[in-house]
Amino acid sequence: MKRFAALILALSLSSVAQAADSFKICWSIYVGWMPWAYGAEQGIVNKWADKYGIDIEVVQINDYIESINQYTAGEFDACTMTNMDALTIPAAGGVDSTALVVGDFSNGNDGVVLKGKDKLADIKGQQVNLVELSVSHYLLARGLESVGLSEKDLTVVNTSDADMVAIYGTDDVTAVATWNPLLSEITSMPNSTKVFDSSMIPGEIIDLLVINTETLKANPKLGKALVGAWYEIMSVMSGSDKAGVDAKTHMATASGTDLAGYEAQLASTEMFYTPAAALDLTNSEKLLATMEHVANFSFDHGLLGDGAPDAGFIGIEMPAGTFGDKGNIKFRFDPSYMTMAAEGKL
């Protein structure tokens, strides 16, 4: 698979990061990541980059997993991704990565849809199209547990998120697991029912901006600029005034929907509009428990690498503690930059 090719490439890259003045970050379409598109196009990212004397290029990648692969391969300094994918792709590939911005958690934005059936148990025996080994896979497994089924009771069909809507429109495809805005579009199709979603496992699918740890250490100004830009964008879009409506309308259009559609997606997203809200989760014991749960799932599905002897093979450093091997920490939640934002020190 292309993801593993990227991991092999990442391992061959130099591990020495140096101070620089030009950086690239990538993002893919998702309700919680559209603010990066808005911030780039409205000059907010450039404003903060200029403040710290650097250049930041913000690039959209149409395929979500491909965006993470490119980050893992060193083509980008930072990338939007979920907590599970950060563990199982860059961290598992040996790329020490840091969650710089904890943006939100999915509270209904990821789901399982069936065609012609109205309950999750009906999925038994079906083929399910999803991005294999992604949070959609994780969501499906958690849902199956809730109805006494396992992945052995169905067939997973790996499908790019870029192709999901078109494939679901064919007669042969009767079950998918995906995320918004694809989820909303698919659910709105005739004879389609969302039978399980992330609101049933709140706080487990977390949306992040992940940055190369060594790059961040060598370039703290990059961390300050990105976090400063993010919370300026949050302050605009969270408002009910014209500026807030215009910002959300811009994000809606960029993601292929309208304002009503985008606000519907926001309604099923627990957005952290302030750094204080993000820090509540980042510093919590709940995050420690969630990442242990995610690591166990990842190990059970072979996502931590062939040589991983257990779920704790990769150390995950969090404010509340470290899960796994403290001698092999490859994934970190660093609250320091969000704390600076909360204290007005950026």
Rank of each mutant, 00 (worst) to 15 (best):
D50Y: 05
V156Q: 06
D163R: 15
R142I: 02
D171N: 15
G103K: 15
G324D: 04
K330W: 03
T178I: 13
N328T: 06
L304H: 02
A320E: 07
S146R: 09
E41F: 03
E204K: 15
I233H: 03
D96Y: 13
T159A: 09
G239H: 04
A225M: 09
K115P: 10
A177Y: 05
L303Q: 06
V173H: 11
A243G: 01
D172R: 15
L222Q: 06
S136K: 05
D325G: 08
A308F: 00
W36Y: 09
S15H: 10
L266T: 03
W48Q: 05
L183R: 10
I25H: 00
P35G: 04
L182E: 15
E343A: 14
D300R: 05
D118I: 08
L120Y: 01
K119D: 12
F76E: 03
I61H: 10
G324C: 09
Y231M: 09
Y231W: 11
G203F: 12
L100E: 10
L279C: 12
T215L: 03
E285W: 11
G256S: 12
T274C: 09
V128A: 00
L226R: 09
D77A: 02
E292K: 15
V147M: 02
S150I: 07
A225C: 12
G228I: 03
K248M: 10
F4Y: 13
V236F: 09
M340D: 14
H250W: 13
D306N: 10
A17V: 04
E204D: 14
I201L: 06
V16R: 11
T80Q: 08
A49F: 06
F297G: 01
I56Q: 00
A6K: 07
G244Q: 05
A247W: 00
V245E: 03
N158G: 13
A162D: 14
N191C: 12
L279M: 11
N191S: 14
E263L: 07
G74F: 02
T80W: 04
A260V: 04
G312L: 11
L144K: 01
D63M: 07
K248W: 04
G256V: 12
L209R: 02
I314S: 02
F272S: 04
F4K: 08
T82M: 13
A277R: 07
L120F: 02
Q42A: 14
L266C: 05
F299M: 04
Y71K: 07
T269N: 11
V95R: 15
I65Q: 11
W33P: 02
A264L: 11
T282S: 12
G324K: 01
A278L: 09
S12F: 13
S22C: 00
I29E: 02
T193L: 12
S97P: 07
A175Y: 00
I25D: 00
V135P: 08
I89Y: 08
L303E: 04
K345L: 13
N283C: 10
A78D: 01
L216E: 06
W230Y: 15
E292R: 14
I233M: 15
